[in-house]
Each structure stands twice: as structure tokens, then as C-alpha cells.
Simulated assay, not measured.
Amino acid sequence: MAATVWVLLVLLGGAAYIGWRLHAYPGGWAYAFGDAYAAERRDLAEARRGVRELERAARRELSEAKGKVRGEETRYRERIRGAEQRLKELQNPGRGELQQTLGELTLYQHVLRHRSEDIPLAGLKVRFESSRHKYYIKVTRPNGRVRDVHYPRTQPEDAVRRFAVRIENAVADENDFLTRRKGLIADTETELIHARANTLSQEAAREALARVTARHSADDRLPAARAELDAARGRWHAETGHLPRT
């Protein structure tokens, strides 16, 4: 079975090659395969190869130049998007990233959520307390309002203590963030202005692309190679009465 498949593949490959050869060098078997017309086939093949090589080189150079333009445009947009996103997060930080949940309290980067209420971290005072039957995390807002959240004694005391400390540290981080926030916003706004104005890399890439395009337009090698291919096709046509493909 495997041998039969290989035979079929070889036969199909051979048929495809013969078909390509007859199409590339039209006029009949003798013109496509005969020794008498080897020089004519070589003449046509060399002319085709000259055009292909020049076209391939031009496409590669043009593609690289266009790729650099696209790359610089992408980096430009990414710089702007990054600065815009950072500015948005500074102006409207929201809850921020989730830090930890324990019982009815969920700690985020900028708020402490109790049940369905978001309590801003800025200025909070946090204290761990315990009684005979319960543990408490007492949260006091800057206006003096207090929220007691209790945990049963079945909850490990150390876990509740560590969570209270983590809230305290988050409060300190938030207070520090708010102290620096105005300056951070100003710095990011400046960064965004510079990102939008900095088009030098894009302009350089576009200028390089324009130079490549202009050089290709002025280069007479490809038109000359195409003219030679047309001449070789004409010579083949004169010999066989069939005009070969380019």
C-alpha cells in the first residue's frame, strides 16, 4: 500500500513538472525538452530570473521600509495609550486591585468594602480587638464614624490580626498616594503631551520609505530586465509561434 502511494506521488509530481515545463516553454515537446532548443530555453530562463530577482529584492526592501513605518506608528500609539491609561487611573482610581477578603470585609487598593459599601481607605484608623467570644476589626473614618466587623472565635486569631495589619498598611499607602497624586497627575499630563508631540521616529521612517520608493522609481535596472524578458519572449515566439508567459 505504501509503495503504491509513493508511485502515485512520483507520477503526479512528474506530470506536474511536465505540465509546468510545457507551459513555461510552449510550442510542443521538442521546444520544452529537446536538446536542440536548450539555448533558447536558457535565454528565456535567464531573462525571467533577472526580472524575478530584481522584483524580489525591491519587494523585500519596500516591505522592510513599510514595516518600520508601521512599527513606529504602533509604538507611537502604544506610548499615548499607556500615558492616557495611567492618567485615567490617577484621576479616577476606583477600587483598584483586589488585595484580600476576610469575612464581610474585602480590601482593595483604594477602598475597604464592607458588605455592599465602599469605604475609602484615606484617613481610616484600624484596630484589632478581641472579646471572649469574638474578634473585631474596628474601622474609624476621618469623621469619627466607627464600623465594627466581628469574626467568630473559630476564625484563627492570627489571620484576623494579619488582615487588620494589611488594612493599616493599605491605608498608609493610600495616604501616601493621595499626597503624591497631584504631582503624579501633572507629570503624567506632561508625559502625554510629549508622547503626542514626539513624531520624530515616525517621520524618519516615512522619509526612509519615501527614499526607497523614489529610488525604485528612478532605478532603470528592472525596466531593462523586463524589456530583456519581453525580447526573449519575442524570440521564442518567432521560433515556435507561441508567446510564453512572463
Rank of each mutant, 00 (worst) to 15 (best):
M1G: 14
A2V: 05
W6S: 05
L8V: 02
L11E: 07
Y17F: 11
W20H: 13
L22H: 14
A24G: 03
P26V: 06
P26D: 09
G27F: 08
G28Q: 00
G34Q: 09
Y37F: 11
E40I: 00
E40D: 14
D43W: 12
A45T: 03
E46C: 02
V51I: 12
E53K: 10
L54E: 10
E55P: 04
E61I: 00
L62Q: 13
L62T: 14
R70A: 05
E72D: 04
Y76H: 14
I80S: 01
R81K: 04
A83L: 02
E84A: 02
L87S: 08
K88D: 04
E89A: 08
G94M: 08
E97Q: 07
L98G: 07
G103N: 10
T106I: 04
Q109L: 06
H110L: 01
V111P: 15
V111L: 04
V111I: 13
L112P: 04
H114F: 12
H114E: 11
R115C: 00
E117W: 14
D118T: 01
P120I: 05
P120S: 04
R127D: 05
F128M: 03
E129K: 15
S131G: 12
K134Q: 13
Y136S: 08
Y136D: 00
I137V: 13
K138Y: 06
V139M: 01
V139H: 01
V146S: 11
D148T: 07
H150D: 13
P152G: 13
T154R: 15
E157H: 09
V160Y: 02
V160D: 04
V165R: 15
I167N: 04
E168S: 11
N169S: 03
V171F: 11
V171R: 12
A172C: 04
E174P: 02
N175S: 06
R181F: 11
K182G: 09
K182R: 14
L184P: 03
I185S: 07
I185V: 14
D187N: 10
T188E: 11
L192F: 07
A197S: 14
R206T: 09
E207Y: 09
R211C: 00
V212K: 04
A218C: 02
D220E: 14
D220I: 05
R221W: 02
R221E: 03
R221N: 04
L222R: 09
L222S: 10
A224L: 11
R226Y: 05
A227C: 05
A227T: 05
L229H: 02
A232M: 03
E239I: 09
E239P: 00
P244E: 00
